[in-house]
């Protein structure tokens, strides 16, 4: 009797051990703050991540099966969309905004430039349904996926039954995106004591702390808040940002502060992609501010920098490029999922 009890105990311990190994752990530095995403409602696991990765790169999500998430969120652009001020979707239609980069999403509490979306799990509903993006619906996506034996098998492998539901689609897409962590830039190597900034970068870092860090707060390089950074209204778009969602006058022209990580990969800049170069952005903060009523108080005084200081600041900003993230094979188009 005793022997069989011990045997059962050993088997249980072994099973618990395998379970722990099976679960996926997010890898990020200890100087990152606590994550905001509630993983208890959608625990990461390798199969679900790989399903989400396949869905992310698959144009099956769009009405005519031409546009995938990656069409506007390319891995080689830190999951942003370059070359176009405004991103384009199905049948070459031009949207209203510049698609934002996707990384470190577990630290975000809202999504989109205006914070229209309050949870990563439901974010994908927006591009799937938008007439200028994928022009489909979650119902139609379920129908298309159900007609694919490959997907029926993948859902079975992931969820242990082949039911393809919106909750499963959305949560698997979220899981893949949660693994997109950018924490291997030169800045990170300096933080980890592996290398040191050169003189120019160090000068740039001090200028950054003085002028930029209150909104683009390190180490994520955003405070995730909504701010008006003095961009004049583009009258061809009349985009009032956060106001579109809250209808509060105090939110007019407020947009979400983007992270400055991977700047070189994510041009053009701003919600409407009006600047193509980092130097244009710095010039905007020096002498291009439109003093609208809701201008962020941090910008009450223009950021005046000499030519040398601008070069130093840009040297520092370039240390935020994370080549290892951009070329991470785990994030690329999945050739085959076994």
């Amino acid at each position: 009797m005793k022997v069989s009890l011990i045997f059962v105990f050993v088997i249980l311990i072994f099973l618990m051990g395998s379970f722990c190994v099976y679960k996926y752990q997010l890898d990020y530095p200890n100087y990152f703050p606590a994550v905001k995403y509630d993983f208890s409602r959608n625990p990461l696991d390798e199969n679900t991540i790989q399903l989400g990765r396949k869905l992310f790169y698959d144009p099956i999500l769009s009405a005519d099966q031409s546009i995938s998430c990656a069409s506007c969120h390319s891995p080689f652009n830190a999951f942003a969309h370059t070359d176009h001020s405004l991103s384009h979707g199905i049948q070459d239609q031009i949207g209203q905004r510049n698609a934002p980069a996707l990384f470190n999403l577990a630290w975000h509490e809202s999504f989109m430039w205006d914070g229209a979306i309050n949870h990563l799990d439901v974010q994908a509903l927006a591009p799937i349904s938008h007439s200028k993006e994928m022009a489909s619906s979650i119902q139609d996506v379920i129908t298309r996926l159900n007609s694919s034996s490959e997907y029926r098998e993948l859902f079975f492998k992931t969820y242990h039954d082949s039911l393809i539901s919106s909750e499963r689609i959305l949560k698997s897409l979220a899981q893949f995106q949660l693994t997109l962590i950018s924490a291997n830039s030169r800045y990170d190597s300096v933080r980890q004591g592996k290398v040191e900034f050169n003189l120019q970068e160090r000068n740039g870092y001090h200028l950054f702390i003085k002028h930029c860090n209150s909104c683009h707060t390190e180490p994520l390089f955003t405070n995730h808040q909504f701010k008006s950074n003095g961009l004049s209204v583009d009258t061809t778009l009349n985009d009032y940002g956060r106001w579109n969602i809250t209808k509060m006058p105090s939110d007019s022209l407020l947009f979400k502060v983007p992270s400055l990580r991977n700047l070189s990969y994510t041009y053009p800049y701003m919600h409407d992609g009006r600047f193509n170069k980092i130097s244009q952005v710095i010039d905007h903060y020096s002498n291009g501010i439109d003093r609208s009523v809701n201008l962020s108080k941090e910008l009450n005084n223009p950021i005046l920098l000499s030519s040398n200081e601008k070069v130093d600041l840009i040297s520092f900003l370039l240390t935020l490029n994370d080549k290892a993230f951009v070329f991470n094979p785990k994030h690329q188009f999945p050739k085959k999922i076994n």
């Binding site: 409602r41 959608n42 949870h119 799990d121 439901v122 539901s165 919106s166 909750e167």
Partner: peptide
């Protein structure tokens, strides 16, 4: 229920 993500 409006801030809890994808539901079934």
């Amino acid at each position: 229920d409006n801030v809890s993500g994808a539901m079934s």
